[in-house]
Amino acid sequence: MKVAITSTGNTPESELDQRFGRCECFVIYDTETNSIEFIPNPNKDALEGAGPASVQIVASRGVEKVISGEFGIKVKSLFDSLKIQMIVIKEPEKKIIEIIDMLNKQ
């Protein structure tokens, strides 16, 4: 299963980005193959429509879960209709590698 995580940088040591649509980078983590892929977000400076455009990016990778600090109202409804689970973590200093470790437990 693939999980998307919003990140402030392109290393596993980077912290979780609290915004979804305008995050710095998406991390696509595959729990089966243990592979990590970093995708720079082309919408990070967009004035409008960053959320839906970012949904397109992660949905096209076939993810089943998305982890971020916050989701906007447009994004929430899009993910709901795509049946992708949203996970909100309100801890800005959480590192990507720590989240991956949590997903891997058991």
Partner: peptide
């Protein structure tokens, strides 16, 4: 959609597949 908060790791999550109920926190 309905939202849940995990008591262990304090994250919030929703349940997009409404048909089957949620049994565990997706993170921890």
């Amino acid at each position: 959609s309905e939202w849940y908060q995990c008591s262990n790791c304090c994250c919030y999550f929703n349940n997009p597949g409404k048909m089957d109920g949620i049994k565990e926190c997706p993170l921890c």
